[in-house]
């Protein structure tokens, strides 16, 4: 390796390190400032809480055997709605791609459902399905399925026309075109729809937990609001951020 190449690689490494360092410094500064302002009562520590109070709150929850239970409940709902939402969205996208007239028929209905604020369906879901996990999962599915369907469908129809034509020159069947070309061609679109789906599932599950739950992080946040325990509310929000980040990292690893 030449000296110039080594220099170039070192420059990239240093750049990466600087970005990471600044990111960490920003987080640490934010936490320290927050703690300082709260301890000195410059900001109202009852409303804004503080990092130390949040850590204590999470630790107390852990000691009461509640923390992992609530995380598990939310995680379970996210995983179920994520997998179901992706599967249903993907299958529908493929069906619409294979039978274009179906897409034309359902297009206005999809737009209608997509533009509807899903939370407005909450009371109906509770009456139809009961105040249980099913309502939470269906709420999440309403949000993530259509987004997955639309993003995957848009990817499928934008498959390179020349490549499709090349397949047709070899008398490929529709299924061969789908499995050997269209799906592999859209690997990146499918992965980015997974990323989109995971954040939508999270939104849906928390929204659902706000409406009907008896456990889960959404429940903790709602309960915290009702009893004006803002340490609990902010702890819940931080837990959601953490879960979302971990799942995002997992999908990124899968992508690589």
């Amino acid at each position: 390796m030449s000296q110039d190449q080594k220099k170039y690689l070192r420059k990239i490494k240093i750049n990466k390190f600087i970005v990471l360092l600044i990111q960490l410094a920003l987080i640490i500064t934010f936490i320290l400032m927050w703690e300082y302002l709260s301890t000195k009562e410059i900001i109202n520590s009852f409303i804004f809480s503080s990092p130390s109070k949040i850590i204590k709150c999470l630790y107390d929850l852990y000691l009461n055997n509640n923390l992992l239970y609530h995380i598990w409940i939310t995680l379970k709902e996210i995983i179920i709605s994520f997998l179901l939402g992706f599967l249903i969205g993907f299958i529908l996208a493929v069906i619409f791609y294979m039978i274009p007239i179906l897409k034309k028929i359902f297009d206005p209905f999809l737009t209608l459902i997509n533009s509807l604020p899903k939370v407005s369906l909450g009371p109906l879901l509770i009456i139809w399905l009961g105040a249980n996990t099913s309502s939470i999962i269906v709420m999440s599915l309403l949000i993530n399925t259509i987004v997955t369907l639309i993003s995957i469908y848009n990817g499928l129809i934008s498959t390179d026309e020349y490549k499709i034509k090349m397949f047709k020159t070899f008398k490929a069947t529709k299924w061969q075109i789908l499995f050997h070309l269209v799906i592999p061609h859209n690997k990146e679109t499918i992965i980015s729809s997974l990323k989109l789906n995971i954040s939508m599932s999270l939104i849906g599950v928390i929204m659902g937990e706000f409406l009907v739950s008896k456990a889960g992080i959404g429940y903790l946040i709602l309960y915290g609001t009702q009893v004006f325990n803002l340490n609990l509310v902010i702890s819940g929000i931080i837990l959601i951020m953490f879960i979302s980040f971990i799942i995002y990292l997992l999908i990124n690893t899968l992508e690589k």
């Binding site: 020349y162 020159t169 008398k171 490929a172 061969q176 050997h180 592999p184 061609h185």
Partner: peptide, 25 residues
């Protein structure tokens, strides 16, 4: 057989697999 304006090679397959795609189909 038909050769198009674009090479239409599939980026996820190597040269041999690309050259054999017609045979496979």
């Amino acid at each position: 057989a038909y050769m198009l304006q674009s090479d239409a090679l599939l980026p996820w397959l190597n040269v041999l697999d690309n050259a054999c795609i017609g045979l496979k189909l």
